[in-house]
Design a protein around this nucleic acid. Sequence first.
DNA 1: TTTTTGAGTTTTGCATACTAGAATACCCTT
DNA 2: AAGGGTATTCTAGTATGCAAAACTCAAAAA
Lengths: 230, 230
Amino acid sequence: MSVIEKIKLRVSGQSLTDRVHDTVLSMILRLEIKPRDRLSEVQFAKELGVSRTPVREAFLRLENLGFLDIIPQSGTVVAPMRATEFRKSQFMREAFELALVRRAIELEDNSELCRALQRQLKLQEVHSELCDESAFFESDEEFHKAIALHCGLPDVWPEVQRVKMHMDRFRFVVRSQHEMPAVLEQHRNIASAICSRNEAEALSAMTVHLRRANHLIEGAAKKYPEYFEL
Amino acid sequence: MSVIEKIKLRVSGQSLTDRVHDTVLSMILRLEIKPRDRLSEVQFAKELGVSRTPVREAFLRLENLGFLDIIPQSGTVVAPMRATEFRKSQFMREAFELALVRRAIELEDNSELCRALQRQLKLQEVHSELCDESAFFESDEEFHKAIALHCGLPDVWPEVQRVKMHMDRFRFVVRSQHEMPAVLEQHRNIASAICSRNEAEALSAMTVHLRRANHLIEGAAKKYPEYFEL
DNA sequence: TTTTTGAGTTTTGCATACTAGAATACCCTT
DNA sequence: AAGGGTATTCTAGTATGCAAAACTCAAAAA
């Protein structure tokens, strides 16, 4: 029997390939299909009511993104959470976001950025009090996105998002329910340091924020060894 | 008549898709097919003696990489050199390589890295004297690659390479024949600053190096406006 | 002269059929 | 019962066929 019970095309992109891609990616990130789970092009095609072609093209995209391992003539599996992948993503995200912070501080007029950050902080206060995790998560993204956009680098944000997805996948396994207040506090530190143009402080605060879940990984690897590859 | 005269599969990867991908990418980077040139899946399939499928899959990969624009039901064109793409790639490469330099300097034992850098410098001296551009280019890559590898981040190098390709495409248009001595000098500065663990100097030298071609872009855009999209 | 419209061509998107290789199951041998 | 070898059954890789959207261009109408 399959690992999949019932699937539907979730997102309505343009092409079938896009929709299948978004659907499968969402399932991977939410751990509805788990690392090392075996996938089958024909099975997904049947479940989704499409042909193999868009499924295959979606799988190829997901392999490029590092979420699937396609073994020729053999099979396709959800990529295990690799220590190397984690280190790589961690490094890349730090490199991006710290460089963005530096730019944000060099900005001649950062008032608009500061307003945007404050707006998200207010939202996060509310979401934290209401324990609305998904809304908090969304505002979290907007917070980081705002920095990229106001630096005049809107194209960089999708790239940050790309590596962020991998980190989120790791973090999803070790998610602690009540980390919203801590994250909010870290965001406050980042925002205040940026707006007061304190570079050292801003870089430090962002580093702390981005590394917050690092020490939890090995615990998760012990708890779910079948997900990991170390 | 086609923009393509005679093509052969150049690289012998594993799958046909891989080979087509490498072939077309090489043609794009060498400007054998030019920005805004119209491509056709069927035409390439015929020329290369394969079916549409591997060509299509290669095209999709190249679209993801940002080298092709696929317009549904209309056509596929080589992506023009976009100012936004240039800024993005420039930012990303700086973020990566500066972060790598920081790590290299924090390395407890960087003797091996320094030896590797010196080795490439020696090679570059020779290649520069012999005016062997392609060999110099190769050693240039190895120089930057060495930094990533000796930081214990081998997985990051392919990512650097990925954004580097875009920059190289820009630089190919504005290539000045006799820049090898200047590049060699910049490499020397970088290597000596890294090996003497002078962080500020190393970052500055790397920044200068990575930005060396920036001011030439607008000239190139005037000379070949049909390649660019500003 | 300008615009429109419509037939025909070309394009990619998607579906399906086929091939070759890898994994597995099964049978035969010992 | 265990081991080895073969046949079957999966898989992804590739080829091809079909459909629908978009572009071309010429002819007709305003």
